[in-house]
Design a protein around this nucleic acid. Structure first.
Lengths: 340, 340
DNA sequence: CTGAAAGCGCTAACAA
DNA sequence: TTGTTAGCGCTTTCAG
């Protein structure tokens, strides 16, 4: 393993000079710089970032702790974060918690140990253990869900409003038994969506039937289980589903039971994955600006890195109810950039 | 920032002893160990892994370089890798190349610089620049696609055979104009699937019409573009699609053109995401053992870490053509574990 | 413009 | 069983 010392002796200078040349700043005679570069490349020298970070007391890495790598919404968020991070020269260490508070705390601890320059998280627990980071002055940005300790920057999406709007639409369209299938109780967005649902019903003077509200895992299995329980209990003509993965589970059940959507039951779900418009029992979707969320969060982090002192900021983005899908034409609308 | 030295003086011992206590190995008097632990926890000490890695010349991190974080097949692979890594005490640095050879080489260089303990990759280029790692004795495992330099362990899925089987099925069912929509030319699996397609046609004595073979991006946009071009050129009654994301694009076009599937055109696609069985124009899927692929790859890496000398090994897994979907019942078959 | 030297926080011989 | 010591590879004063 060739080190800076090797390069230094090959170029006939000190390691200090090599360091200066490689870093770019600090004035070095061009002639010397050239010799160093030549030596470095001919030796195939590659800088050891561990040593550099040890010395500098910071590493150019961000930890991105997300709740579910299988959730298209969150992978879009990750893309947004990564794109900004990369252009700013940071690498992103992606960690997957599977909505498990213990795994979450474990990853935060690892990030802590690694002295990451910043942490972005979609907290699964409101009390995610980020105090250590914060105390040490490491910026933490909460994405999609707030953290208990509000000393950190936060980017949210107003999903409560969107939920309310969607449910109001269902009721206005004449749906009488509208249910709500949402994520785990502990999770902020899961609760927000239920709140929006309740508000809409109250606005419309419809009494909330608690049997129509189901909490479950934020994934296909959760959606499936909730739908089974819901439909076993009685008929329903509208459902608000908290994310696209759950929607898949719900639709599976709907299909198996021979129900038609939207005729028998109209389903509105959060998140527009590319495939949502092609689902068999059809779903109306609520678009969430996932990519933009990731970008904003990363920008807040960058900003905070420059002004460590500034007060915490909260950015609120808006979710929009897509127009009812017209089965005949299905434009591949991409409000978020996609890979090409 | 409290260091080991602080803990040492607080506990009235040397840093060497603190290190020994924290590492666990090496015998330390229980009494001393307790004092050290007390000191450490009361000071809120957290070990600096940078320093440790610098000293040990290895870091407990694997780089997982995948081609597309948005591809459900690959996220399942990532889960497999991560589960094995975690139980073995490694963290996984996930990198997303977007099928871009330059980004790929960039990430490999970063992994190289970070002195990762191992690298797992779904190479987008056969000549991914892993020689540096290999030369330094860092294990590299190729997943789903082989690397040019075959000095590395490899886990593949026999998708050529699966493609052949699927296309043979289409022809046997009376389909006469069967097309193939696959990924970028450079990508191994993209080519393999075309090879299987060609073999099937040759077996059946059907001449291969080159206009029916389309290469495109391994994502929704790619599938969409290929399908447009294909259908503009003439009618088709069967299509083999190389992955689920492309299938979404293809189905969108099929639907927009008012074609029915499988009546007018039967579509068989690789990868069974949870939502594939719910797609409107229906698709028959080829199941690939993604999670198992990830696990095998991780196990090969672990194994190689223990026996640096052993010769490279290649594991071949099998893809299976799922039975024709019966629209009425859609069992949520999970051959791969899912989050609950 | 360049070099010497100190030291980031930790681990691993080697002594004691 | 514990301490001393010598670095891992790099950056950064401080001199020159």
């Amino acid at each position: 393993m060739t080190t800076m010392k090797d390069v230094a002796s090959a170029a006939g200078v000190s390691t200090a000079t090599v360091s200066r040349v490689l870093a770019g700043h600090a004035a070095v005679k061009p002639e010397t710089a050239r010799r160093v570069h030549d030596a470095a490349s001919s030796l195939g020298y590659v800088l050891n970032p561990l040593a550099r970070s040890l010395r500098q007391q910071r590493s150019p890495v961000w930890a991105l702790v997300i709740a579910d790598i299988g959730n298209p919404f969150l992978t879009q968020v990750a893309r947004g974060v990564e794109d900004v991070a990369r252009t700013a020269g940071y690498s992103v260490l992606l960690c997957n918690t599977d909505e498990d508070p213990e795994k979450e705390d474990g990853y935060i601890a690892i990030a802590d140990q690694y002295r990451v320059a910043g942490l972005l998280i979609t907290p699964t627990s409101t009390r995610a253990a980020v105090d250590g980071l914060l105390a040490r002055g490491v910026p933490v940005v909460a994405m999609d869900r707030p953290l208990g300790s509000s000393a950190s920057d936060t980017v949210l999406i107003d999903s409560r409003r969107a939920a309310r709007e969607a449910v109001t639409g269902l009721v206005d369209a004449g749906r009488r038994r509208v249910a709500c299938i949402t994520g785990p109780r502990r999770v902020f967005t899961a609760e927000e969506r239920v709140l929006g649902y309740r508000e809409a019903l109250q606005d419309s003077g419809v009494e909330v039937d608690e049997d129509l509200v189901h909490y479950a895992g934020f994934n296909e299995a959760g959606g499936r289980a909730a739908a089974q329980a819901l439909l076993d209990a009685g008929p329903v003509d509208g459902v608000l589903v908290a994310n696209s993965l759950m929607a898949v589970g719900v639709l599976g059940v709907v299909r198996e039971r021979g129900l038609r959507a939207p005729e028998d039951v109209e389903i509105v779900a959060f998140d527009d994955a590319p495939w949502t418009s092609l689902l068999a029992p059809s779903v109306r979707v609520i678009h969430q600006p996932a990519y933009a969320l990731g970008r904003s969060a990363a920008e807040l982090l960058l900003d905070r890195l420059e002004q460590p002192g500034r007060e915490a900021r909260t950015v609120m983005l808006t979710a929009t109810l897509d127009p009812t899908p017209t089965p005949a034409s299905t434009p591949a609308s991409s409000k978020d950039p996609t890979t090409t």
